[in-house]
Design a protein around this nucleic acid. Sequence first.
DNA 1: CTGGTAATAGGAATCGTTACTAATACCTGA
DNA 2: TCAGGTATTAGTAACGATTCCTATTACCAG
Lengths: 140, 140
Amino acid sequence: MSNYEPLQMTRSRRAILRELSSAEHHPTADEVYQRVRRTIPRISLATVYRNLDILTRHGMIRTLADADGQRRYDATLEDHCHVRCEVCGRVDDVHVVPLEAVERSITDASGYSISGYSLSFAGVCPRCAGGGRRGAEDAS
Amino acid sequence: MSNYEPLQMTRSRRAILRELSSAEHHPTADEVYQRVRRTIPRISLATVYRNLDILTRHGMIRTLADADGQRRYDATLEDHCHVRCEVCGRVDDVHVVPLEAVERSITDASGYSISGYSLSFAGVCPRCAGGGRRGAEDAS
DNA sequence: CTGGTAATAGGAATCGTTACTAATACCTGA
DNA sequence: TCAGGTATTAGTAACGATTCCTATTACCAG
Ligand SMILES: [Mn+2]
Ligand SMILES: [Mn+2]
Ligand SMILES: [Zn+2]
Ligand SMILES: [Zn+2]
């Protein structure tokens, strides 16, 4: 899952990718925009969104679902865990392996006080993988 | 993390909770709205949103972050895994324990074709747990 | 009942994200 | 180096999910 059509490495694209790679804490699209603007003042927010999406589809970055409204982006490709602070919303990486009694180690490793975890897989369901190209609305 | 101020069990609130408990696949706010309308035709979508939020803050239901725009709600309180179809967006529960080589079992148990997982914990970071009541914007 | 507080309906307002379009950047081949 | 053709962009309008606002209504205790 990391190729599509070829893609040019434009100035905007490179700047966005570089900014994201050097960012320490999973910036939102707007945060990436603000930072890239220091290099390319006339860049458009729409360009940032479009490229974050394209880079994600090409498997060059990851888009994270935030419990709050906005998405966050991550230049780290390997699967890893995240801790999101329920107060300020910041998202940090956590480097621990499985779960079970992981909450304990997560607490130790990150200093966060954990109240719960959320593990979700992404994939294609049988309904969509099989026959029809479009997923059933609410088939059961 | 499951109490706040007291809360009345109004007709709307009860209907929303009941509808969510009997729903099989993590409905969106609008889906809950559509279903509750069959019982309370004049209920407002804002009321549904407000109550889903209140019930979540009271630990009576869970709010799920969807990679797509909209949130989904879950009446199952215990931590468990979810599989989201990248095509139709539906979210199913998965009953397996840890991860490691879990992708395999997830695939078998759900029939989904898994392309990756996302495990994130929720909690309060040291910065927010300690001193200030407000989380630092971007302190590092 | 009656007064006081919590909750609601309805609709406007927000805000993150997308869509659209004319203008540019970029690439490739002559 | 230059022209032609395609990909990308800036700027802005449009969208849709969620939240806010406020007059009205439901609910509860006394
Ligand atoms: Mn990360
Ligand atoms: Mn669930
Ligand atoms: Zn925090
Ligand atoms: Zn599907």
